[in-house]
């Protein structure tokens, strides 16, 4: 019964990103949106934690938010998949519940 976790705040601003990572179960999915995409940048101080999470969970980034913040696709951590708003919808319908880490 996997859960989709959405994260909309930078891990450098708030603890909600870390809190989300602390409450993941294997097979859950994590989607970074809005300022949350800041956490998807590779070689950031936070990237290691996200890459570790990507070993047991699926990790997604909302492409439009990434582009808006000037983060190129090639600069995203390994194991993260880009989705558009339609992909966001598919993630919501493809999981049993959505937990928004506001």
């Amino acid at each position: 019964m996997p859960t989709l976790h959405t994260i909309n705040k930078s891990p450098f601003e708030r603890s909600s990103f870390a809190s989300a990572l602390n409450h993941l179960l294997p097979g859950d999915a994590l989607l970074m949106i809005e300022d949350g995409v800041v956490g998807a940048r590779k070689s950031s101080a936070f990237a290691g934690r996200l890459e570790a999470a990507a070993k047991t969970c699926r990790v997604y980034v909302l492409g439009p938010d990434l582009a808006a913040r000037g983060i190129a696709e090639k600069d995203v951590v390994a194991g993260a998949t880009l989705v558009d708003y339609g992909g966001f919808v598919d993630l919501v319908t493809g999981h049993d519940r959505t937990q928004a880490w506001l």
Binding site: E34, Y85, G86
Partner: peptide
């Protein structure tokens, strides 16, 4: 984000 999500969901027939 909610607006873009809602539009995308409608386009997918939800």
């Amino acid at each position: 984000t909610a607006y873009h999500f809602t539009k995308a969901a409608l386009e997918k027939g939800h």
